[in-house]
Design a protein around this nucleic acid. Structure first.
Lengths: 133, 133
DNA sequence: ATGCGTGCAAACGATTTGCAGAGAA
DNA sequence: TTCTCTGCAAATCGTTTGCACGCAT
C-alpha cells in the first residue's frame, strides 16, 4: 500500500509545511520551491511535489487548478469548504458553502449521485482592486 | 490581433464542430481527435486544439479541467451556466446557478470584486450508478 | 541495521507554436 | 492572387518517476 504521510520526520517536510503555513494564499509548487531555496532551505523540486501531493491527499492542504497549473494552500482541518481567491495576489478567504444539500437535491432530480464538486470564486481583493483602478 | 473564429469556412472546422455537437458530454481534445480520425476525417491534433480554444473563447464551447486534462462540450449560446458531470461516461446535464447574486454578496462582504467563478458537480448518472452497483 | 524520504535527471503527457504548403475568398 | 487555416514536428512546461544514497528510527 501507499505509505502514509510523515512516517518519518525530516527537515524538508518541516520546511515545506512551514512555508505553506506562512502564506495566506494559494501558491504553485514551483514558486514554493523557489522561495524555499531563496530562504536557504535545500529542497528538491520533486520533494516539494511529492509532499504537496501527500498533504493534499491527507486533506491538510487544498489545491485548485488555474491555467493548467496547480495551486496549493494550507487549510487546517480536512473539512470541506470553498475559497474566494484574488487573481492578482493569490490571497484567499474562505466562503461558506451555498447549501450543500441543494447540490444533492439538484443532482438527485436528474438521477445523479454526487461524488464531489468544485466551487471557487475568483476576483480581486480590496487591496488589489484599489491599485488596479 | 488574433483572428476570430470562422473567418474562413473549412472542412475541419465543420468536422470538429459537428463531432462536438454529436456528443452530449465532455470530451478531451485527444479523444475528439481520435474519433475524427476513426471517422475518416483527416484533421491534425493541433487544429483540434486551436479550434477548441477558439470556440471556447467565443463562448460556443464550455471547458472544464479534470485531472490536469481539459474537457470540452458544445453549449449553445454563451450564457453563463454550470454542469452536472458523470465521472464515468462523461455525460452532462446543465444545472441552475445557486443564486449568482449570493456569490457577489459573499465576495463583497469580504471586499472582493468577483471576476469569475467555477462551479461543477461530479457524480454518476443514473445509468452508470446502476451498472457500478 | 533497516528502509523511508530525498535529490537529480530523465521521462511524460497535454498543449502550444514555428514554418511552409493548401485552399477559401 | 492573397492571406487565413492546416499539418507536421519540434518545443514548452508543469508534474511524475527511476534509481542510488543519506538519514531518521
Amino acid at each position: 500500500m501507499t505509505a502514509a504521510t510523515g512516517v518519518r520526520r525530516t527537515a524538508q517536510k518541516a520546511a515545506i509545511r512551514q512555508a505553506l503555513d506562512g502564506k495566506d494564499g494559494f501558491t504553485s509548487a514551483q514558486q514554493l520551491h523557489a522561495e524555499l531555496e531563496a530562504g536557504g532551505d535545500r529542497v528538491g523540486l520533486a520533494t516539494v511535489y511529492r509532499q504537496l501531493n501527500a498533504l493534499t491527499a491527507a486533506g491538510l492542504v487544498d489545491a485548485i487548478t488555474v491555467e493548467g497549473e496547480q495551486l496549493y494552500k494550507a487549510c487546517g482541518d480536512g473539512a470541506h469548504h470553498h475559497h474566494l481567491v484574488c487573481e492578482n495576489c493569490g490571497k484567499s478567504d474562505e466562503i461558506d458553502p451555498p447549501s450543500e444539500e441543494w447540490i444533492q437535491a439538484a443532482a438527485a432530480a436528474r438521477g445523479y449521485t454526487v461524488t464531489r464538486h468544485v466551487f471557487e470564486v475568483f476576483g480581486l481583493c480590496a487591496d488589489c482592486a484599489r491599485i488596479a483602478r
